[in-house]
C-alpha cells in the first residue's frame, strides 16, 4: 500500500486524494492517514513543483560543485555537510564515493552569485581542500520527467 502511494505521489504530488484512493482500491481516510503517517516518519519530506526555468524570463544559473574535504576530529562528514547545506542557496548536498567527497548543487541567480559563494563561503571553510565548479548548460530530464518534449498522442483514434 505504502509503496503504491509513494509511486503515485512521486509522479504527481497533486493527485486528488479521492482519485488516489479509488485507484488503489482503498478509501480516502485510510490513504490520508497513511500519507500523514509517512509525513511524520519523514518518508515524505515535501511536495515540490517541477519548473522548467528555461521557459520563463527568469535567469538562473545552476552549478554542480565537487568538494574535497578533510574531516577533522569531532567533525565527521555529517557535521561538515551541515555547515554546507545550511546556506540558502545550496539546493542539494550528497556525500559521494570516489574521487571527491561532496556534490553540492547550487541554484544561483547569477554567475557572480555562484562564484561568490564558492570563493567566499565554501572554499574558506577550514576542512575544504578543494572545489571544482561545473555549470549546467541545459536540463533534459529531471525527476523522471523529460523537460524539453511535450508529448502528443499520435495513435490512431480508434483501433480494434
Amino acid at each position: 500500500m505504502r509503496d503504491k502511494i509513494l509511486r503515485m505521489l512521486e509522479r504527481n504530488s497533486r493527485i486528488d486524494l479521492k482519485d488516489l484512493a479509488v485507484m488503489l482500491g482503498s478509501d480516502e481516510v485510510t490513504v490520508a492517514n497513511e500519507i500523514a503517517q509517512m509525513e511524520k516518519e519523514n518518508i515524505i519530506c515535501g511536495y515540490h513543483t517541477m519548473i522548467n526555468w528555461e521557459n520563463t524570463s527568469q535567469e538562473k544559473v545552476i552549478a554542480l560543485i565537487e568538494v574535497r574535504v578533510t574531516p577533522q576530529r569531532g567533525m565527521g562528514f555529517d557535521k561538515l555537510a551541515e555547515r554546507i547545506y545550511q546556506y540558502e542557496e545550496v539546493e542539494t548536498v550528497y556525500l559521494m564515493s570516489g574521487g571527491y567527497d561532496f556534490t553540492v548543487i547550487l541554484d544561483g541567480k547569477t554567475l557572480r552569485e555562484v562564484s561568490q559563494f564558492v570563493s567566499d563561503k565554501l572554499s574558506t571553510l577550514e576542512s575544504v581542500l578543494s572545489t571544482s565548479t561545473h555549470f549546467v548548460l541545459k536540463k533534459y530530464k529531471e525527476h523522471g520527467t523529460v523537460l524539453a518534449r511535450k508529448t502528443k498522442d499520435e495513435r490512431m483514434l480508434v483501433t480494434p
Binding site: R155, T159, P160
Partner: peptide, 23 residues
C-alpha cells in the same frame, strides 16, 4: 471499427477512448 473510425476521423478535435493499444 473501420466504419466508426471514418466517422471519428472527420472530427480531428475529438478525444478518444477508442484505441486498442497501450498508451
Amino acid at each position: 471499427i473501420r466504419k466508426f473510425f471514418d466517422v471519428v476521423s472527420e472530427m480531428p478535435d475529438a478525444i478518444s477512448l477508442g484505441v486498442g493499444e497501450p498508451d
